[in-house]
Design a binder for these strands. Structure first.
Lengths: 189, 189
DNA sequence: GTCTATATGTGGATAGAC
DNA sequence: GTCTATCCACATATAGAC
């Protein structure tokens, strides 16, 4: 094992959680995947609840970083929004995977309070970013038909998550494209 | 038990699956809920896989019936579309529940082939209904900004499922309303 | 059709050696 | 930090009595 075990465990758990849900993977799965024994996992994450918290925190931080990177690279509302669509498309992994917080939403009852709070703040973060980006797109004229940025942001967040879910349901990434097509038609190139 | 046991089991299982996912409930839960013993469930549904098939089939049939009822009661595209939004809002049950096929999408790997096929045909059915309804709304002028009914249908299906998921994630039905507000603004009364 | 009893596997978690 | 060994609760499922 060249990279450190804790990271390898988080990577494996994230893959598992995003493809099969929180109740769909076990310490045995992670052990087999990473190449250590079940019991050894408890040294890094004493409980599955603790693992889920670490997982969600790392995921939220990663997405926040990507949003910041998009802003650093792209200047127009349209280019930034296209960047976020790319992020959600990429997270799909060919229709086999979901955004972690989409996947976790179904398993809500099995998750500790901390994760629920983390999901909530994650969604707020993306919502704010979307609102600001729609606002920018309206100002710079690169996104059409923006009435009220906040409403567009709410609808777009649901659209992106729903598009992932639809594609996942049939393991067909083309369904993601169908769902986001109307949004993309509002982009001015 | 006044109503028949099989129906009571399906009712209980549907509630459980839609609030906790397919991997989130057990025969023990159903037994406690319905008031019989675990073993007795196997008389009605030999395996959990068989139960999941019966569950999805009944659900799909029910939604198809509701769509037909909406068409029978309402004549305009707007009124019909509003009826479907109501259906998805109602399925939310205050932010605690999801459409069965939304909930099942995450647990895809645990489900038998038959259920996957059933989910696929269910989505096709709703998609076709949406396409026809957007087409009608464009013709009768009760839904604005319909460019291509098929694209609107794909986006709307994802929007409705995503809106449910968002509301479920925070157990807050107001988030569903935020997400569908833009869609509703296209309704001409 | 429902029960008791049980089989068999797997879940997350712990103790203690190395 | 990883291992073996083990615990206990719970999962789905079966056998056979009533």
């Amino acid at each position: 094992m060249s990279i450190d075990t804790k990271t390898a465990l988080l990577d494996s758990a994230e893959r598992a959680a995003r493809t099969r849900g929180f109740d769909g993977f076990s310490y045995a799965d992670l052990a087999a995947d990473v190449g250590i024994r079940k019991a050894s996992i408890h040294h890094h994450f004493p409980t599955k609840a603790a693992l889920s918290v670490a997982l969600m925190r790392r995921y939220a931080g990663g997405v926040e970083q990507v949003c910041a990177d998009i802003d650093a690279v792209h200047a127009t509302g349209q280019a930034r929004m296209a960047g976020l669509v790319d992020l959600y498309r990429g997270a799909l992994d060919g229709g086999k995977s979901l955004c972690l917080c989409v996947s976790f939403s179904t398993s809500r009852e099995s998750l500790p309070e901390d994760v629920i709070a983390e999901i909530s703040s994650f969604r707020k973060m993306v919502f704010c970013w979307l609102t600001a980006t729609f606002d920018l797109g309206r100002m710079d004229g690169t996104i059409t038909a923006v009435l009220e940025p906040g409403k567009d942001a709410a609808a777009t967040l649901s659209l992106l998550e729903g598009a992932q879910l639809t594609a996942r349901a049939e393991e067909n990434p083309a369904l993601f494209e169908n769902a986001v097509q109307l949004l993309q038609q509002r982009f001015v190139h």
